[in-house]
């Protein structure tokens, strides 16, 4: 390795800071979680429906139940898990306001939702003729919101949601072969903004959903002059979500002479932040950080 390559590591972080768009949603989630009171313990205590965008005519069906074209109530033989009932109609998640008008953890029965997540992923960094393709791992923080346009317009459930997200990730460094030398950076940082298309596959709580995102990414790419150049590229992502708590994600960042394809696991910040916090606490108290 040539002398003078090392300082490149220091420059990799210039111009990147954790974006306020990511920090603020995470902070608001934690605040709401800390203030949230336990859900009502029984149907009799459930507050009335207040979400006028998902109002339905009165029905004989019990809250949260809908048994299709032939039954409006549960059949006599219906079985269920014993669990604490959800609030309101029984379909909105506990961490929501006005019966799913705004949800802090997204779910099928939400008109608008906060998107706040962390994810880890592994894949490949493909740099073509500039060197071998190497494994690439990244840690991502994402924030944003989603809306149901058709639900807002027609005032009834619709499976399509549209969202806007911003994310920041830090990953393993990039390399470039220059003659007989290997030039490498200490880390790869990227910021992204993306439009999210969600299709919820059914209506019940914790429904699965398909998310297709497309947007722009800005990240540093190691150039021929052995310097890091901040470039704009295309960001594409496909995810299979399990309610608002977890997703399996395949994402790609397509930059000039640098393509990163990553497969990963995404979880809501309410679960992901404690994981990151406990890890950081162990590193700090262990004298490593």
């Amino acid at each position: 390795m040539r002398a003078g390559v090392r300082p490149l590591r220091g420059r990799a972080g210039v111009g990147y800071r954790v974006h306020a768009v990511v920090i603020l949603p995470l902070a608001s989630v934690l605040l709401v979680a800390s203030l949230a009171s336990p859900a009502a313990g029984s149907e009799a205590e459930a507050p009335p429906r207040t979400n006028r965008y998902l109002e339905a005519p009165p029905s004989s069906a019990p809250a949260g139940e809908d048994f299709g074209p032939f039954f409006t109530g549960p059949p006599a033989s219906e079985t269920s898990f014993v669990k604490a009932p959800r609030r309101g109609s029984g379909l909105a998640p506990r961490l929501s306001v006005r019966d799913g008008l705004f949800c802090f953890v997204e779910d099928a029965h939400c008109v608008a939702s906060l998107l706040a997540s962390t994810d880890v992923g592994i894949g490949m960094a493909i740099i073509g003729e500039n060197g071998p393709d190497l494994p690439y791992a990244q840690l991502t923080f994402r924030g944003g919101f989603s809306l149901r346009p058709v639900t807002l317009y027609r005032k009834r459930y619709h499976p399509w949601a549209l969202g806007l997200t911003a994310s920041y990730s830090v990953g393993t460094g990039g390399i470039r072969l220059q003659a007989e030398d290997v030039v490498e950076t200490a880390r790869t940082q990227a910021t992204r903004i993306a439009l999210v298309n969600q299709l919820w596959l059914w209506h019940r709580p914790h429904a699965f959903h398909l998310d297709a995102s497309i947007g722009a990414v800005r990240s540093g790419v190691l150039g021929r002059d052995e310097r890091i150049h901040d470039l704009w590229g295309t960001h594409v992502e496909l995810a299979l979500g399990f309610g608002g708590w977890a997703s399996l994600v395949v994402s790609g960042d397509f930059l000039d002479e640098d393509t990163r394809i990553v497969f990963g696991f995404r979880t809501h910040a309410l679960a992901g932040v404690p994981v990151a916090g406990l890890t950081a606490l162990g590193l700090w108290a262990g004298g490593v950080l």
């Binding site: 590591r9 972080g13 210039v14 990147y16 190497l134 840690l139 393993t172 880390r187 490593v288 950080l289």
Partner: peptide, 16 residues
């Protein structure tokens, strides 16, 4: 390595 985010004073950083 200057930490994960490039602003620290630690030898802990991303590793592939």
């Amino acid at each position: 390595g200057a930490g994960f985010f490039g602003a620290g004073r630690t030898d802990l950083g991303p590793v592939r």
